[in-house]
Design a binder for these strands. Structure first.
Lengths: 251, 251
DNA sequence: CGGTGTCTTGAATACCATCAAGTCTTGTGG
DNA sequence: CCACAAGACTTGATGGTATTCAAGACACCG
């Protein structure tokens, strides 16, 4: 079973304007924005350069100042928003999955304090901030949608604070896996009830997300494997013992 | 110099409606909300029970479900929003200072995932969520103000993630002190340039905010004191060597 | 084919937690 | 006002978790 992700090209079927084939999360911000803007009196598109932005894996999608007037939303692939430290280490704030806005704070403020890196090949749309903001003021339903995204973002950040402040390496890894599995299930990228998922993260991603070192991530994951809790191979993860994993994760 | 904070009573001068004597942060949400609502067509107040809510130190201001329809803003005193773990430990997400909204997410969603505890005596106002939300839709300037509060809240959360994930105990403590000093200075609760501040936090607060144990907080603070970086006594903190503290904090 | 990135494993060490005892302060009821 | 209890802080000893350093196996890519 040599699973391999197809590389994304700008003219793949999913890249057509309107995102007809979009993996919509329950909010589907892209759709909402597009619809809202169709009604508004602007000649040109609210998007920057259409919906065909593609970034290959491991490349940086945005640096801090690249997001000055753009509000990016991930359409396809996995990305990570991270903070760099002067000594070269880094901390991942959040993994971004399809349907995720890079940061809801970008709606109101041009400054971003983090950079975004592609984990897999990533396709995204970028909306013009001033126009989007104007649309937000005119369309209460749009504000409602974005507020949900923001609540979600903040809840995940708060959970990460608790994980990093008060939980062991074992627990952090278990919770990361369960959290991603849950998000992917909600997105429909994992069938309901399924315990397998495509898992493109390298161990250094996991380390940077959980505040650990790659070496220690390797050790703990080996223990998970040996004790039959999960199986990881070929960028694919299977939860073998969901009960035990949840018990470890305290969920 | 036996400094002691005056207890807050509901009919102290600061407690008058309108918050004339309010320690306004640069946003002054209370003021903005009050003004915005004066123009709106409601018979009764947008506030719950006036502006006289007072909670003594160490008491819980809100539990998770107490914030169902209230959006609280701190007027006076220090509070902490925290998450409890099943084993009784806890993680403080943020210290709340005068002018702070408890959580901007409360504007849109009634569920709160944290509880709020008074560090000192605390006075707060509570606004009715549905009414506030309606006002938000009608007054773009109000949305603008709240978005600033939200960006601030998120930036602090992100910084805390980096601190807990990638910094040593020494650095976390230095950054906590500098961060609080900066916020108090912006609020005008510490004169510009001054290096002294009232510091009501117990070491267990510091421990819960930095993801450490009280014992280790004590040890590191002792080192800070012995090396002449800060002085702490009688709930009062003086930064003796700001350069060194900033160097430790990586700022 | 070498080079780079990824992962694994082992050994030594550092940092912080835990356990424990004791001092000092603060608050409370007799 | 005093006695007592509870909370807050300090300090030392010990142990565990995670880091650092190092070396090697393996896959992938130009």
């Amino acid at each position: 079973m040599n699973v391999r992700l197809k590389p994304i090209s700008a003219d793949s079927p999913q890249a057509q304007p309107g995102c007809a084939a979009c993996v919509a999360n329950e909010l589907n911000l892209c759709q909402a924005v597009s619809e809202a803007c169709a009604v508004l009196p602007w000649g040109e598109s609210i998007e920057i350069g259409g919906s065909n932005h593609v970034v290959p894996a491991r490349r940086i999608v945005f640096r801090e100042h690249d997001m000055r007037d753009a509000v990016p939303i991930i359409c396809e692939g996995w990305a990570a928003s991270a903070v760099l430290l002067p000594d070269g280490r880094r901390q991942i704030l959040s993994f971004l999955l399809p349907g995720d806005i890079v940061s809801t704070a970008l709606l109101f403020d041009a400054r971003a304090s983090c950079l975004v890196e592609a984990v897999t090949d990533v396709r995204y749309r970028a909306f013009k901030r001033p126009e989007l903001k104007a649309a937000l003021h005119k369309r209460p339903d749009l504000l409602e949608k974005f507020s949900k995204a923001w609540i979600d973002e903040k809840a995940r950040a708060d959970q990460l604070i608790v994980d990093l402040g008060r939980r062991s390496a074992e627990q952090r890894l278990a919770r990361l896996i369960l959290g991603l599995h849950e998000r992917l299930t909600r997105l429909g990228l994992v069938p309901a009830g399924a315990l397998e998922m495509g898992f493109p993260l390298r161990q250094h991603h996991i380390a940077d997300a959980t505040g650990l070192t790659p070496v220690h991530v390797s050790t703990v994951l080996s223990e998970f494997r040996k004790s039959g809790v999960v199986k990881i191979s070929e960028r694919w993860l299977t939860i073998l013992d969901p009960d035990r994993l949840r018990r470890v994760a305290n969920r």
